[in-house]
């Protein structure tokens, strides 16, 4: 994979920068250039999400593609951010810790790498929100 594809999403992946439509108030992550509701009437601005949210559903992946093969088993979830948008991400926890409705917070992790000599790409995963981490 050529570097630009990973580089261009660095702000989005590191800090959950999405978009907001000022016309309808819709919030979007990942960022969208067009509001799916207002389309050309939408006025899109940048919007950073806090990264705290709740697990809507999850799975534990035991059979992964080559890029994730060495990390199995890992927990993958759909997280509903406190601000509203939903996204897919890994939960850094034991498989039996994961629960629907579990509160999570963002953590900064390696998402993958382009082989041992290629670029490393970083971004946001999630961890259970504990009292200490609040």
């Amino acid at each position: 994979m050529a570097v630009p594809r990973l580089w261009r999403h660095i702000p989005t992946r590191y800090n959950l920068i999405g978009t907001e439509c000022q016309t309808c108030g819709g919030l979007y992550f990942p960022p969208r250039t067009t509001c799916p509701t207002c389309r050309r009437d939408g006025r899109i601005i940048e919007r950073k999400f806090k990264g705290t949210g709740e697990v809507v559903t999850y799975t534990t992946i035991y059979s992964a593609s080559a890029a994730f093969h060495r990390q199995t088993p890992y927990v993958l979830a759909i997280v509903k951010l406190d601000e509203g948008p939903l996204l897919t991400g890994q939960i850094v926890c034991d498989p039996d810790e994961a629960k629907i409705g579990m509160k999570v917070r963002p953590v900064f992790r390696k998402l993958g790498e382009d082989g041992p000599s290629g670029i490393i790409y970083y971004g946001t995963k999630f961890a259970p929100l504990t009292e200490a981490s609040q």
Binding site: V92, V107, Y122
Partner: peptide, 16 residues
């Protein structure tokens, strides 16, 4: 470290 942690991720968590 976890499988997806390295010096950069640790530095970022400390910095944040």
């Amino acid at each position: 470290p976890d499988l997806d942690e390295d010096t950069a991720t640790i530095a970022v968590e400390a910095a944040r």
